[in-house]
Simulated assay, not measured.
Amino acid sequence: MIEVSNVQKAFDGNPVLKGINCTFETGKCNLLLGGSGTGKSVLLQCIVGLMKPDIGSITFDGTVYTNNKVGIRQEIRRKIGMLFQGSALFDSMTVAENVAFPLQMLTPEMSAEERRDRVEFCLKRVGLENAGTKMPAEVSGGMKKRVGIARAIAPQCTYLFCDEPNSGLDPATSIKIDNLIHEITHEYNITTVIVTHDMNSVIEIGEHIIFLYEGQKLWDGTKDEILNVEVPELKEFIFSSSLVRAAKRVDDEGGLAAITDEQGANI
C-alpha cells in the first residue's frame, strides 16, 4: 500500500498539486484519472522520487519515503517497476538485453545464468518468448509495451507504475495491455498505479480510481461506482465519451440493449 498525505507541489509559484491525500491499494489496479494538466504525472513523479514534494509525505507499506535516509529510499526504489509512456527501450539493445538491464543494475548478486532465466521467464509471461533476439525497431508498438512490462517486473517489483500505458495503441491492443497489467497485478499482488485519461481503461480495469482536477483529488471509487457519480467535474469528464454515455444508458435500463451512438447507429 502506498499512502500520500497532503502532497503539495508548485512551479515558479504556480500550484500544481494542492494537498493531495490518497491511498493506492495493494493487489489492485489503482488509476490516476484526469484530463491533461491536472497534476497526474507530477504526482506520479513525486511518488517514485523523480520529483520532491514541497510539502507532504509519501509512505510505502508503512515506511516513510519522503525525506528519509538515502539507504531507505534506495531500498524502496529497488522495489519499483516503471512502464514509461513511450516504452523507453534502448534502441541499441535487443529485447532480451532491455529486460536484463534493470537486473544488471539492481541485482548484482545474480549470476549470468540466473539473469538469463529471469529474462526468459518475464518474456514468456508477457507472451514474447520468441522475441528476445529482436531489436526494438523490429517489433510493434504493442510488443514494445509488453517488453516494457517485462522489464518493469524483471527485478520482482512490489510497486508497478504505468504512465499512459495505452498511448499510441489501437483499441484492441490497448485492451490486451490493460488485461496484462491487471493479470500481473493480481498474480504477484503488486501495488499498481496507472496514470491515464482513457475511459476504456477505467471500465476494463478500474478497481480503484482517483480523479484529479486542477491539482486536487475530487473523487475516488471503483469502476462500478463511477457511472453514478454526482461530482460535476467528473461527470463532465467521463460523459464526454459517447460510448460511456451509451454504457450508462444500458446500465440504467438493466438490460443488454445494443449500445448506440448519439445518432442511434450501432457502434
Results as ranks from 00 to 15, higher is better:
Pro155Val: 02
Pro171Ala: 10
Asp198Gly: 10
Asn179Met: 11
Glu183Pro: 01
Ile175Asn: 08
Cys157Val: 06
Asp170Met: 07
His182Lys: 12
Gly221Leu: 00
Leu227Thr: 01
Ile181Phe: 02
Asp224Arg: 01
Ile181Ser: 12
Tyr213Gln: 10
Asp163Arg: 11
Thr191Val: 13
Leu160Met: 01
Pro171Glu: 09
Glu204Ala: 02
Glu183Leu: 10
Glu204Trp: 03
Lys217Pro: 12
Ser174Trp: 09
Ile184Met: 07
Leu218Ile: 12
Glu183Trp: 01
His197Asp: 13
Ile209Cys: 11
Tyr159Phe: 08
Leu218Met: 09
Lys176Trp: 02
Ile190Ser: 13
Gly168Gln: 14
Thr196Trp: 10
Asp198Met: 09
Trp219Tyr: 02
Cys162Val: 02
Leu169Ile: 08
Val231Gly: 00
His182Gly: 08
Asp224Ala: 10
Asn189Ala: 04
Pro171Trp: 03
Lys217His: 03
Ile153Cys: 01
Tyr159Ser: 01
Ala150Thr: 01
Asn228Thr: 09
Gly215Ala: 11
Tyr159Cys: 06
His197Gln: 13
Leu160Phe: 00
Asp224Phe: 01
Glu207Asn: 08
Ile194Leu: 11
Val193Leu: 08
Lys223Arg: 11
Leu169Ala: 13
Glu225Ile: 01
Asn166Ile: 12
His197Thr: 07
Pro171Tyr: 10
Glu187Trp: 07
Glu225Phe: 04
Pro171Leu: 05
Asn228Lys: 14
Glu207Thr: 04
Asn189Lys: 10
Ile210Arg: 02
Leu180Met: 11
Gly215Gln: 14
Pro232Gly: 08
Ile203Val: 08
Asn200Ile: 06
Gln216Leu: 05
Val195Ser: 11
Trp219His: 13
Glu164Ile: 03
Pro171Val: 03
Glu214Gln: 14
Trp219Thr: 03
Asn189Asp: 14
Asn228Ser: 10
Leu227Glu: 00
Val193Ser: 03
Thr173Asp: 12
Leu160Trp: 00
Glu207Val: 02
Pro155Gln: 14
Ala154Gly: 06
Gly168Ser: 07
Ser167Tyr: 11
Ser174His: 13
Ile205Gln: 14
Thr222Val: 05
Leu218Glu: 10
His186Gly: 03
Glu214Thr: 11
Asn189Ile: 06
Thr173His: 14
Pro232Asp: 09
Asn179Val: 02
Asn179Asp: 13
Met199Glu: 11
Ile184Asn: 02
Met199Trp: 15
Glu207Ile: 06
Gly221Ser: 04
Thr191Cys: 13
Gly221Arg: 00
His197Pro: 13
Val193Pro: 03
His197Asn: 12
Ile194Asn: 12
Gly215Pro: 10
Asp170His: 08
Ala152Met: 05
Glu183Asp: 14
Ser167Pro: 12
Leu218Tyr: 14
Leu160Val: 00
Asn189His: 14
Tyr188Lys: 15
Ile190Asp: 05
Ile209Thr: 10
Asn166Gln: 06
Thr196Gly: 15
Pro232Val: 03
Glu183Ser: 15
Asn179Arg: 14
Ile210Gly: 02
Leu218Lys: 14
Asp163Met: 09
Pro171Thr: 07
Ser167Ala: 15
Pro171Arg: 09
Tyr213Asn: 14
Thr196Gln: 06
Ala172His: 12
His208Asn: 15
Lys217Glu: 07
Glu187Ile: 05
Ile209Asn: 10
Ile181Gln: 08
Gly221Lys: 00
Val193His: 07
Ile205Tyr: 13
Asn166Lys: 04
Gly215Val: 05
Glu207Gly: 07
Leu218Ser: 04
Cys157Leu: 04
